Amino acid sequence: MAGDVREDNQPYDDINVTPMLDLAYVLLVVFIILTTASVQGIKVESPVTSAAENLAKPQTRAITVTRQGDVFLDAYPVDMAQLETRLAQFKALNPALPVVLKGDAAAQYDKVMQALEICKKLGITEVGLVTKRAQ
């Protein structure tokens, strides 16, 4: 009996680190997902205006026209037909769909007008133009 008591009180020779590694991997995955999810939209050089700043509403979709004339819906490249199809899908889910149009100051005016015409055709009335505030 004395031998049994002594074996129960012996210190562990090694520590099981598997639960700690599992936690570290979960935290790493969460960090990666949150970091990549926060990156949204395409960076463009917005034109300057002295108008008051409008705040984007939830569920807002962003149409971006780059300097080269590329068109993006949120952060995804689209052509005009895809833009119309996807906006129509979003409009079906939310009849009061707000859209913001971010056009580069040196972008092709024709592409910006095509995007506005698509919004008009779909009956999207809440369209905001993104600009920089004048100093």
Rank of each mutant, 00 (worst) to 15 (best):
8 D>N: 03
8 D>S: 00
8 D>P: 00
8 D>G: 01
8 D>M: 05
10 Q>L: 14
10 Q>V: 07
10 Q>H: 02
10 Q>T: 05
11 P>V: 11
11 P>G: 07
12 Y>I: 00
13 D>T: 06
13 D>W: 00
13 D>K: 14
14 D>W: 10
14 D>H: 12
15 I>W: 08
15 I>L: 10
16 N>C: 03
16 N>R: 11
16 N>M: 03
18 T>K: 01
19 P>S: 02
19 P>K: 02
19 P>R: 01
20 M>W: 03
20 M>D: 02
20 M>Y: 08
20 M>S: 04
21 L>C: 00
21 L>M: 05
21 L>Y: 09
22 D>M: 09
22 D>T: 01
22 D>F: 02
22 D>I: 01
23 L>K: 08
23 L>Q: 07
24 A>W: 07
25 Y>L: 07
26 V>F: 05
26 V>G: 02
27 L>D: 09
27 L>T: 02
28 L>C: 07
28 L>A: 11
28 L>H: 10
30 V>F: 13
30 V>I: 15
30 V>S: 11
30 V>G: 07
31 F>W: 12
31 F>D: 03
33 I>G: 11
33 I>Q: 12
34 L>F: 14
34 L>D: 06
35 T>V: 15
35 T>P: 03
36 T>W: 15
37 A>I: 11
38 S>R: 15
38 S>G: 10
38 S>Q: 14
38 S>D: 11
39 V>T: 12
39 V>E: 06
40 Q>M: 12
40 Q>G: 10
40 Q>P: 04
40 Q>S: 14
41 G>E: 10
42 I>M: 12
43 K>S: 13
43 K>F: 10
44 V>A: 06
44 V>R: 03
44 V>C: 03
45 E>A: 11
45 E>L: 10
46 S>H: 14
46 S>K: 11
47 P>W: 06
47 P>C: 04
47 P>V: 06
48 V>A: 09
48 V>P: 04
49 T>R: 12
49 T>L: 08
50 S>D: 13
50 S>C: 03
50 S>V: 02
52 A>C: 00
52 A>S: 03
53 E>I: 05
53 E>G: 00
53 E>A: 08
54 N>Y: 13
55 L>N: 12
56 A>Y: 00
57 K>S: 13
60 T>Q: 09
60 T>R: 05
60 T>V: 06
61 R>S: 10
61 R>P: 00
62 A>E: 15
63 I>N: 06
63 I>Q: 01
64 T>N: 03
65 V>L: 05
66 T>Q: 04
66 T>S: 08
66 T>M: 04
66 T>E: 04
67 R>E: 06
68 Q>Y: 08
69 G>S: 06
70 D>L: 12
70 D>V: 09
70 D>E: 13
71 V>S: 01
72 F>L: 05
72 F>P: 05
73 L>G: 06
73 L>C: 06
73 L>V: 09
73 L>P: 08
73 L>N: 10
73 L>E: 08
74 D>E: 12
74 D>L: 08
74 D>Y: 09
75 A>V: 01
75 A>S: 15
75 A>T: 14
75 A>G: 12
